Amino acid sequence: MKKISFLFLILFPFLVFAQNEKIFERLSAIEDNNGKIWYNIDGYSISKEVFNSEFNEKGLKKLYRKHAITNEDQKIKNDSIIINNLHVLKEKKISDSLIEKNSYYFLENPNKSTTLIWFGKTGDSDLSLEQTLVNLIIENKIPKENFKSMNIEILDFAGRPIDLGKNNCYWTFLNTVQCPDYGEMNWSIHKSLVNAKQSIKNQLLLTLSRKSGKIDSEEWVDVEFEGVSTKAKKIIYSFKGIKSLITKIYGGNTLTIYYVADKVRDKYISCVLSFWNDEASSTGLSPLLDKIMSLK
């Protein structure tokens, strides 16, 4: 028994390292101009922000109000987190088939100020992944290689550099790129293909739940996505009311959206790509989408 325990103690650090390596293969990070850090993994949007508010009842109340956390929301200490903390989980029903989950980790810093790490996701959450990432962030163990540049003339798309040139492309969120007159896309890298497909299904359900417009058409189409032959869900979305008038002023009146998930370069990728009808090129896609996929 002692030999088994000793062997486990020897192997445990290597097991932890291997687990973290898998996470780092899927994790993207970026620091904005205000010092706030954003992360993306497995369909999660994550942020880390440091506040001057003290980690006490008075200071935390300010942060609770800022994030619409009420007295009814449970604040629980998570013993898996390596420093003093309070964890709050809030759920919001988007539709009968979709739940939005927001997970807040309030952390006590050595100087008694407060760090907030937020996880946002539609669909099922992964508490184990959240806890692991929180501890890695606390210990400053996220490799520099995982951080993206605010300048995206050259975009690292899941391991492949894509030249976007000087097309005024910019981040609207981490792993969400918008290029005026060229199109927009968001993506995430997942631990499995099942996870990636569920992510695009959730994004489609989110689109369907919106009241600002309607689906004009919906179909599965054959595409070549990053060199992989696969299928994508294609929808044509049109806006209603005031938003419809605004979109016409700017040129487009319908949005074409593709939802695709597959294994690319040994990575499981979910990706949503869209463009306005007036941005389409001769290929049937927009210039940004042309760099990622083609219609078959």
Results as ranks from 00 to 15, higher is better:
M1H: 13
K3N: 10
K3A: 14
L9R: 12
I10C: 12
I10F: 15
P13V: 12
F14W: 15
F14N: 04
F17D: 12
A18W: 15
Q19I: 08
K22E: 15
I23T: 11
F24A: 05
E25H: 08
R26T: 00
L27Q: 04
S28D: 13
W38A: 10
W38G: 05
Y39L: 03
Y39H: 07
D42L: 11
F55K: 07
N56I: 03
K58I: 12
G59R: 12
K66A: 13
K66M: 14
N71L: 14
Q74T: 08
N78R: 11
D79M: 12
S80V: 04
I83E: 05
V88Y: 03
K90T: 01
S95G: 03
S95I: 02
I99N: 09
S103W: 07
L107S: 02
N111P: 00
K112A: 05
I117S: 01
K121I: 06
T122V: 13
T122F: 09
L127K: 15
Q131N: 15
T132Y: 08
V134K: 09
L136M: 15
I137L: 08
I137G: 04
N140W: 09
N140L: 08
F147T: 08
K148T: 04
N151I: 14
E153C: 04
I154L: 13
G159A: 07
G159I: 03
I162K: 10
D163L: 14
L164A: 03
L164K: 06
C169P: 00
Y170I: 13
W171P: 03
T172P: 00
F173I: 00
F173E: 15
C179K: 10
C179Q: 10
C179L: 09
Y182H: 13
Y182P: 00
E184V: 05
W187S: 03
W187T: 01
S188V: 02
S188W: 03
I189Y: 02
H190D: 00
L193W: 00
V194W: 05
A196T: 01
A196R: 08
K197Q: 12
S199G: 01
Q203W: 02
L204W: 04
L205E: 03
T207N: 09
R210D: 02
R210K: 13
S212Y: 14
S212K: 13
S212F: 14
G213N: 09
G213I: 06
S217T: 01
E219N: 06
F225P: 02
F225G: 04
G227A: 09
S229H: 13
S229P: 01
T230K: 08
A232N: 07
K233Y: 07
K233H: 12
I236E: 08
I242V: 14
I242H: 09
S244N: 15
S244Y: 14
K248M: 06
Y250I: 15
G252T: 05
N253F: 11
T256M: 01
Y258V: 02
V260P: 01
D262A: 09
V264E: 05
D266I: 06
Y268E: 05
W276D: 04
N277F: 02
N277C: 04
E279H: 12
S282M: 06
T283Q: 11
L285R: 05
L288V: 06
D290R: 14
M293Y: 12
S294G: 12
